[in-house]
Simulated scan of single mutants.
Amino acid sequence: MKIYDITLPIHPEMLHWGRKPEVEVVESLSAGDASNVTRWRLGAHTGTHVDAPAHFRDGATPIDEVSLHSLVGPALVVDLTHVDGDVEPHHLEEGGAAGHTRVLLKTSNSAGPLKETERAPQWVGLSPKAADWLIEHEVELIGIDYLTIESHHRTDTWDVHHSLLGAGVLILENADLDQVPAGTYDLTCLPTKLVGADGSFARAILTTRD
């Protein structure tokens, strides 16, 4: 079995939207304590994470109640590294996304903006029409390789998030797909069970078997 870990490492200097993670040493062996203990201050959307419907709609499904069936199972990685700007419906069609429940978009973000420590001025995101396409084709999980699936010029209206999450489609963001070839894999994506939360950081892997 081959395992691709598509999870970003979490640390204080990482790429992050807003406040970066903070780490406090509570106990340490070097200080004479019985063990090493740290306390981390993290946002729910730190690193590789899943957006739940509750992220953009009060009363919608929180992260601890989303279906694990949407997060675990066959997934298609679509190579869209040639796309500049927005991912459009024809990109999804040409990439063979129709008929897949879980779709991960590998874009130029993986080798570029995702590797930086500060947010880029622009990145590849999903267009509202592409979001509608995913809903029409009954995709349950859509992933992308950056801080947000929203295009950089739509982070004031958040149209894609409203459409996808409003339809119950889960969003996986900050998936590191740089070393993952296009194709079908088994996805295991397990967000931490934060009760009532709008989303959660997750450990996500793709596996293949010979």
Rank of each mutant, 00 (worst) to 15 (best):
L164N: 03
H137F: 04
L206F: 08
E27Y: 12
L206N: 07
T38G: 02
V50K: 02
E94C: 10
H162W: 14
T155W: 05
F201W: 13
E22V: 10
H91F: 02
S127G: 03
E93P: 11
R209Q: 05
P74S: 13
H82F: 05
P12S: 05
P121V: 09
H49K: 02
L170E: 05
A98R: 00
E118N: 10
H49Q: 04
S30G: 00
P53Q: 14
A204R: 05
A175L: 07
T46L: 01
S127H: 00
D210W: 05
P12L: 08
R119H: 10
T61V: 14
I149R: 03
T117P: 00
A167S: 12
W133V: 13
T48D: 08
G112Y: 07
A34I: 06
R19C: 08
I205A: 13
T81G: 09
S30T: 09
N109W: 07
E93W: 07
E116Y: 07
L105G: 02
K115A: 10
H55C: 12
M14D: 01
D176M: 01
L172T: 13
V25G: 11
D79N: 15
D156H: 06
A204P: 03
L147C: 06
L194Y: 10
P113T: 15
D156A: 03
W40V: 04
S35P: 00
H91K: 01
H137D: 03
Q179F: 01
E150M: 05
H152K: 04
H49M: 03
G43P: 02
L165H: 04
V50Q: 01
G47D: 09
D198S: 11
L76E: 09
I63V: 08
G85M: 04
K106C: 08
K106A: 11
A98W: 00
V66F: 02
L187K: 10
S110V: 04
P113S: 15
L71H: 10
V78P: 00
V26A: 12
G183R: 08
T46N: 01
V103P: 00
T188K: 06
D145V: 06
K129Y: 04
H16V: 04
N36D: 15
H55L: 15
A130W: 14
V72M: 08
H91Q: 01
E140F: 01
E93N: 14
R119E: 13
L177H: 15
T207E: 11
K115Q: 15
L206P: 03
G125S: 06
H90C: 05
I205Q: 14
I171K: 00
W158F: 14
H137Q: 12
